[in-house]
Design a protein around this nucleic acid. Structure first.
Length: 265
DNA sequence: ATGGCTTGCACCGCAAGA
């Protein structure tokens, strides 16, 4: 990594068209080097390249109509290898745009919008498990070529019960099922580290809150937006925080951004 | 209490999210 301080962030914006003002405002006070976005909900021709360019960011994206869509924004001054851009998992044929990889400052950045899974007895859950299995195989391959990899995104998995506001109420549901958590453990077994848990954190830290029933005000949330780093990056990670600020803004995304700071040497 | 918000798309309600 050829930089002194490197900040990476992830944010599920739930429509970039609606949330662009929030993204621009947030970047003004949080000028991270890399921002991974999920749920763009727009086609590539509608991506706000010019507005983000004006804000000092280069955009890489893979969108589709109505659903899904992921992007990686890179702040000017960082070193980007544009030929390293990969949309979707080469090991998995997928109509849905959920994965984007780009090498920035020598770090393999992977932005993911993991499937929701709907319910453990649904077709979408089957898809989620297959998608997770294929992700594992792809990352295993990527890790043969680099020691510096960052997987950021909306995992749609709450790793542990402490990442769930009411674990008892969530038993048997997607996002917390043993099958999904086993896949999460599989990613950890590749050496990837959930850096949020490397640091002391407030009790009941979440990154998503239901729009309904005053979920945010009551802190009824889940921690499902995560940053996993390989050991060589994680050992230089000095902070990982969830920024709840924009969740309290008017017309917010239901997710909050998560930021990791890496300081080599 | 199986709803409750929010978004996009296409209509005058729906699917999908988590």
């Amino acid at each position: 990594m050829n930089t002194s301080v490197f900040q990476l962030a992830t944010w599920n914006v739930n429509s970039l068209k609606v949330r662009l003002p929030h993204v621009l405002q947030w970047l003004q006070t949080n000028p991270v080097d890399v921002l991974c976005l999920q749920e763009l909900k727009l086609t590539d021709d509608k991506f706000p390249v010019a507005e983000l360019r004006q804000a000092g960011y280069q955009s890489f994206f893979a969108g589709q109509k109505t659903y899904n869509g992921v992007a990686i924004l890179v702040r000017d001054g960082n070193s980007v290898d544009a030929t390293s851009l990969v949309a979707n998992n080469p090991f998995y044929t997928d109509e849905q745009k959920r994965l984007l990889a780009l090498t920035v400052n020598g770090v393999r950045v992977v932005c993911g919008y993991f499937p929701n899974g709907q319910a453990p007895d649904s077709e979408k859950f089957i898809y989620k498990l297959a998608w997770l299995e294929a992700l594992h195989r792809w990352l295993e391959e990527e890790l043969k070529h680099t020691t510096q990899l960052a997987l950021l995104g909306d995992y749609n998995i709450a790793p542990e019960d402490r990442d769930v506001h009411d674990p008892a109420a969530w038993v048997g549901q997607n996002l917390v099922s043993p099958q999904e958590r086993a896949h999460f453990s599989g990613l950890q077994n590749l050496g990837l580290i959930d850096v949020f848990r490397q640091f002391d954190q407030p009790e009941k830290s979440y990154s998503w809150w239901d729009y309904r029933m005053m979920g945010f005000r009551r802190n009824h949330g889940l921690r499902i937006d995560l940053i996993l780093l390989t050991p060589s990056l994680a050992e230089h990670c000095t902070a990982c925080t969830i920024d709840k600020t924009p969740r309290a803004w008017e017309q917010p995304s239901d997710h909050a951004p998560v930021i990791a700071t890496v300081r080599p040497d």
